[in-house]
């Protein structure tokens, strides 16, 4: 094995790691959206991704990939709003942390079970909108879909950010995130804003679902692991930093592919937890998060 060859392997691993990492990042971004407005997050986020991907699979055969996208995004928004309405609103009112965690987990379980009954338990092939033959740059193979994943994920995060900063609705979201009580007193319907943030969050997850499905496979059980990885990313990057999820996603994605190749594919999920514990012990607010000061 020459060193040139091993450099090529390393570059190949980096490329795959970046693509996977961006998917984690975009899901973690969804956690941030709801955490900002309500200090809650959807423990069934992986299932939102899975539903988006499976609905996309059913629609794509009729409409083709590009027309399927807005349909899936709309579906994701509705699904997120349902989760907030059924699982989170009551718990926010009663200030019960256990309440929303349990309720969003329960909804995730129900969604997964329903998906199993509708689409079956097997992994399904998702048609790719782009040629599946890899492009080759200096000996490193890149799937066209991997390029779409990286830029699609970045574009989605950028769009949501621009919306939040520029539009009046987005400003209501930011205001609620800063101080829910004060925003409420200024006439902002904060519970609507929270519902909306859940809709946006599930929309990004559904989008991630149809991005990743052509590269991996899709199926009722695809969500759990991805949702979990995104937790790790959200903690590593910080639950409040947009930059954090991108970098956190890349760190996790690359470490995982490297572990998978150099150690064993069986252990590839382990570094996530190790990183997560390390970051929590060294910098609890995340690599890019800023510590908040609690007021008495």
């Amino acid at each position: 094995m020459t060193s040139e060859y091993s450099m090529q392997v390393l570059a190949q691993l980096l490329v795959s790691g970046i693509a996977v990492g961006m998917i984690y990042g975009v899901i973690a971004f969804g956690y941030q959206l709801t955490f900002a407005t309500s200090k809650t997050l959807n423990f069934g986020q992986g299932e939102a991704l899975m539903l988006g991907s499976l609905v996309g699979l059913s629609v794509v055969t009729i409409t083709g990939y590009w027309i399927m996208l807005p349909i899936v995004l709309a579906f994701g928004m509705i699904q997120g709003a349902v989760v907030e309405r059924l699982g989170v609103r009551q718990a926010i009112k009663t200030k019960s942390e256990a309440g929303w965690i349990m309720a969003t987990i329960a909804l995730g379980i129900i969604f997964k079970n329903l998906a199993e009954n509708i689409w079956g338990r097997d992994a399904l092939k998702f048609p790719s909108p782009l040629p599946e033959a890899p492009l080759s740059f200096m000996g490193v193979n890149v799937l066209p879909m991997e390029v779409v994943i990286v830029f699609g994920a970045l574009a989605m995060m950028l769009l949501v950010e621009v919306f939040n900063r520029r539009s009046i609705y987005g400003k209501a979201v930011v205001a609620t995130a800063n101080d829910r009580d004060a925003a409420g007193l200024m006439g902002i319907n904060t519970s609507l804003v929270i519902t909306f943030s859940y809709a946006l969050s599930s929309m990004t997850a559904a989008f991630a679902g149809v991005l990743v499905a052509p590269v991996t496979l899709t199926g009722a059980s695809m969500g759990g692991a991805l949702g979990l990885k995104a937790f790790a990313v959200a903690i590593i990057g910080g639950l409040s930093s947009g930059m954090g999820v991108v970098v956190g996603g890349l760190i996790l994605g690359i470490t995982e592919t490297l572990t998978g190749y150099y150690l064993s594919t069986g252990y590839k999920d382990v570094p996530g937890l190790v990183l997560l514990l390390l970051v929590l012990s060294l910098k609890p607010s995340g690599l890019f998060g800023s510590a908040t000061i609690k007021k008495v």
Partner: peptide, 22 residues
């Protein structure tokens, strides 16, 4: 618990969920 409980929030739930998988 030592790292996860340093911050308030749903961190313990997230960390223990990851632990279960690992």
């Amino acid at each position: 618990a030592l790292p996860a409980l340093r911050v308030t929030g749903p961190y313990l739930a997230m960390v223990t969920l990851a632990f279960g998988t690992i």
